[in-house]
Amino acid sequence: MPHAIFTAKRTPLTPTLKADDDVVHLNGYTLAAATPDAANARRGQLDRCALLDASALPRLGLRGPNAAQALIQQGYCLPERPNTASFQPEGSLIAQLSASEFLLLGAPSLTPSPWADSEQPLRPGPGCYLLPRQDTHGWLALTGHCVAEVMAKLCGVDLSPAAFPVGGVAQTSVARINAIVINASTASRPCFYLLMDSASATYLWSVLEDAIDEFDGARLGLMDYLAIAG
């Protein structure tokens, strides 16, 4: 049984690892180590079309009439309106899902997140409730210049750059399941985050794998991604 090499935390898409695979730990999850060579090829793949499981990165939700105030008090910069997201200086992202609900996504970084094991740093008070998004939602990332075209195979919302700019948030149906799509593109690389019911992550992964095939897309490990983009 290969179970022993895993830590206790696993993402919905925890890969099948062999006992002699090189592994690393990030936020308490076991991941395949970044492959040391061919960084340029991986960068090219990221630019072209790549799909990766970002579920080992921290995320949580905050909801309630006092949620916005609680985040502001913590020094976060909030989006201007629902269905938009704002990047924080340290690289994390806050998406506003409604007037009183926020989704916090940790920075895509090799630095362990303070949220990884505890949500207490946010110290929610009355009228402010933490939501266990680390467990309710899987987190996939789709990168490359064809992200809008890939999504057009799965989603009835126009996610082209003109209609869905960086920082846009779409709470919609993707391949018939509910999903949150966030345009987290950088100046150099288009990137969509997709957050879906964690129990449906395997399903959506398989659907996306099929969809990216047309664009010469490929799967990429999170550590490979972080080594390049983090």
Partner: peptide
């Protein structure tokens, strides 16, 4: 063509 048939799996699947 390419219909979508969602499924859900438990973490122990």
């Amino acid at each position: 063509g390419r219909h979508f048939d969602p499924f859900r799996q438990t973490p122990m699947h």
